[in-house]
């Protein structure tokens, strides 16, 4: 066991995990106002990543620039997901689950049709930049950017939820939908906006993943899983718990890959996930 690369491994895990947290957050936002989970969320991440690829090959846009386009597009996709899938099924969680399964295959195969089954890579001008901390840690700049953006988003989300009418309306719809309607909240509009927000978060997660991750249509399911795990660990609608749990999953992945050889190492995040659920079935952040 080479302990000299431990700090590096931990830092790597934290940074990658923060993007997992973002995917979980996009699901948590959805769940909090509609009580439904979409399994196609990871495939929407893939979709946003391929959009970044097309913008790169077509217009030579750097991934960090193309977010200006993917963000509104994915926000629209999120809103459309609510309007055309969740709303007609009136939030029936099982039906949404099944419908999103269909959507998952649809997105995957459309991506396969357009881009083919080979891996793609989208470089960014910062892809090969590194930042060194002392002599023990060398971090890829894209990962650091990802971590910074996740922190900033968490801050914005906190202020919005705590101190604005918009955030309070979101919490109100989550806690008591009928009362929210009675005091004058347009519940449908709040849901539409939150789904758009969820799409925007996906676009950001996608852009952050692109410079350090190869693209493949079948990767969507992996993103759904790494988003679903923090979501469940944090008890479904604790947004900051979700981001933190994403970091736990990222850490488990980094440590498992570096220190434990073979299949066990790769499945460490899932093993830890199951262990946490066995010992804390209500999630990590609830008292009882």
């Amino acid at each position: 066991m080479d302990l000299s690369i431990l700090p590096q491994t931990i830092a790597q895990g934290v940074l990658v995990g923060s993007t997992y947290g973002l995917i979980g957050l996009s699901m948590g936002l959805m769940y909090s106002v509609s009580g439904a989970i979409s399994l196609a969320q990871g495939h929407m991440v893939s979709m946003s990543m391929y959009l970044v690829l097309s913008l790169y090959t077509g217009l030579q846009l750097d991934p960090y620039v193309s977010v200006a386009i993917t963000l509104p597009v994915l926000a629209l996709a999120g809103a459309a997901l609510y309007w055309f899938l969740i709303r007609p099924l009136s939030g029936n969680a099982i039906m949404v689950f099944q419908a999103s399964l269909g959507l998952m295959f649809l997105i995957e195969n459309v991506l396969l049709m357009i881009y083919g089954g080979q891996f793609h890579q989208v470089p960014s001008i910062v892809s090969n930049r590194f930042i060194t901390f002392g002599d023990a840690m060398i971090m890829k700049l894209p990962l650091l950017i990802g971590f910074g953006v996740t922190g900033a988003l968490a801050g914005i989300l906190f202020v919005t939820l705590e101190y604005t009418d918009y955030g309070r309306s979101m919490r109100a719809v989550h806690q008591n939908e009928r009362s929210a309607a009675l005091v004058g909240v347009n519940v449908q509009k709040v849901r539409l906006w939150v789904f758009a927000m969820s799409g925007a978060v996906i676009a950001i997660a996608g852009v952050l993943l692109v410079p350090s991750t190869p693209l493949h249509p079948a990767e969507g399911l992996k993103y759904t899983l790494v988003g679903l795990m923090p979501l469940v660990l944090a008890g479904m609608s604790n947004f900051f718990g979700i981001l933190l749990s994403g970091v736990i999953i990222g850490l488990a992945e980094a440590i498992g890959t570096v220190y434990i050889s073979g299949a066990i190492g790769l499945s460490l995040p899932y093993i830890i996930f199951i262990l946490i659920l066995i010992f804390r079935p209500h999630g990590l952040f609830k008292g009882h």
Partner: peptide
């Protein structure tokens, strides 16, 4: 039918 995990002030603001 209050919003249980909001403060009294937040409920009133709602």
């Amino acid at each position: 039918q209050l919003f249980p995990s909001m403060t009294v002030l937040e409920n009133l603001l709602m």
